[in-house]
Simulated assay, not measured.
Amino acid sequence: MAGYRGRIAPSPTGYLHLGHARTFLIAEQRARVAGGVLVLRDEDLDASRARPEYARAMLEDLAWLRIRWEEGPQVSGDEPGAFGPYRQSSRFTLYRKVIGDLQRNGWLYRCTCSRRDLASAARAPHAEDDDEPLYPGTCRDRGCVGEGALRFRVPEGEVVGFVDGGLGPQTFVAGRDFGDFVVERRDGVPSYQLACVADDFAMGITEVVRGRDLLRSTARQILLQRALAYPTPDYFHCALMVDAHGQRLAKRSDALSLRAMRERGVSAAEVRAMALGGTVR
């Protein structure tokens, strides 16, 4: 597949906020400069938190912000593009196949540990301090059977390096910077890491643009790509939004949701300026 293919991948678990706007605007800019295609993927795997009203608001707010995507769900209800469906809740057949490929090649093992973080494994981490904790390998060699999550057996000591388009060279070491990670929750829902890798490959994504808080997730996903013999796309991690004092914004702030800012009369142009400037005025 020739040409640049980027993507924006919001989750309909709340209203989009200013930090989302920054990442998505940068993703659109990079697609336009490259003369490529921008894909919108609705990452609605977390059924306990995803809501139809958030999905509708997500599309409306992106259109209001004048972000244009060529493939994926539209405000009109259409879903153009040859690589759909573009909602992850409709792509479980693909995820099951990819998980099966990993199992057959010995990359996965059953984990029956009762860990509260498994309940949120389908969600993308939103901050370095909210990243998946380093798993101690309790079930790695136990041969656990029955109900439990599936974990990816990271190759201990393997170096994962890549040159990030926004932050420059990055290096992580498997087993030190992150441990064996979940690819399928105990309830059968694929994890964020697995679904991203499967979808980015299937949709022909050539560059992933997202926040710098997901750098470790990128390292994990590169290991999955290696295990599956998938090509690794380029990555561009954006600096995070900060306030006027240089402090990072809270992960979620109702006052900074695009919906709330619209209701206060803030214009799309003002939001775009704040988001691309990286600082809340």
Results as ranks from 00 to 15, higher is better:
Trp64Thr: 02
Gln225Leu: 05
Arg91Glu: 04
Ser257Trp: 03
Glu128Leu: 14
Lys251Cys: 00
Arg87Phe: 01
Arg281Met: 15
Thr93Leu: 10
Asp243Phe: 15
Cys139Gly: 04
Gly148Thr: 06
Pro125Thr: 07
Leu256Thr: 07
Val39Ser: 05
Val208Asp: 07
Leu240Thr: 07
Arg96His: 13
Gly146Glu: 02
Arg104Val: 08
Arg30Ser: 12
Pro169Ile: 06
Glu70Arg: 11
Tyr135Gln: 02
Met274Thr: 15
Gly246Gln: 14
Arg7Tyr: 05
Tyr95Gly: 03
Ile222Cys: 12
Val37Ile: 13
Glu28Gly: 07
Gly246Ile: 13
Gly278Val: 12
Phe92Arg: 10
Ala34Asp: 12
Ala273Val: 13
Ile222Pro: 09
Leu59Gly: 00
Ser89Glu: 02
Gly175Pro: 08
Asp200Ala: 00
Leu258Glu: 04
Asn105Asp: 15
Asp187Lys: 05
Ile26Ala: 08
Gly161His: 14
Cys139Asn: 03
Gly188Ala: 09
Asp101His: 12
Leu65Val: 04
Ala82Cys: 10
Ala2Pro: 12
Trp107Phe: 12
Arg104Tyr: 05
Leu249Tyr: 09
Cys111Gly: 08
Glu132Pro: 13
His126Phe: 05
Asp200Ser: 00
Cys111Asp: 13
Leu167Lys: 12
Leu59Tyr: 01
Ile205Ser: 04
Ala55Phe: 03
Cys111Ile: 04
Met241Asn: 05
Ala47Ile: 09
Met1Ser: 13
Phe92Tyr: 10
Met58Pro: 02
Arg41Trp: 01
